[in-house]
Amino acid sequence: MAAPRIMVNVPKTAARGEIVEIKTLIAHKMETGHRMGLNGQRIPRDIINRFECTYNGALVFAADLFPAVSANPFIAFTTVAVASGTLKFRWVDDHGKVSTTSAKITVT
């Protein structure tokens, strides 16, 4: 499939100082590295190991992920609406593949 499948939910508008909830979902197999394939060989680990969210350039949330996280990881967190602008999301997997998306928020 062409684009990586990602979903983020950021409120379109928020009042200044309001705590907003942000939800993200990305398609990824999150192969733990512990499973055996049909040929009896270990399936190499391939997980998203890092997630970051910046808000107008400032890092507001980050997480290191480990093999126990299930496939298609869902990450939700909150942040304070400080100013109108852009939230950028970034996922990095074991192959160094970076997936990104962004969303706008208007703060009144």
């Binding site: 499939m1 499948r5 979903m7 939910n9 979902l25 990305i26 398609a27």
Partner: peptide
């Protein structure tokens, strides 16, 4: 919750 339901990733992919 459409924003937490992983099945929505397939719905989104289907739209593309």
């Amino acid at each position: 919750d459409d924003f937490a339901n992983p099945g929505m990733l397939w719905v989104g992919g289907g739209e593309a």
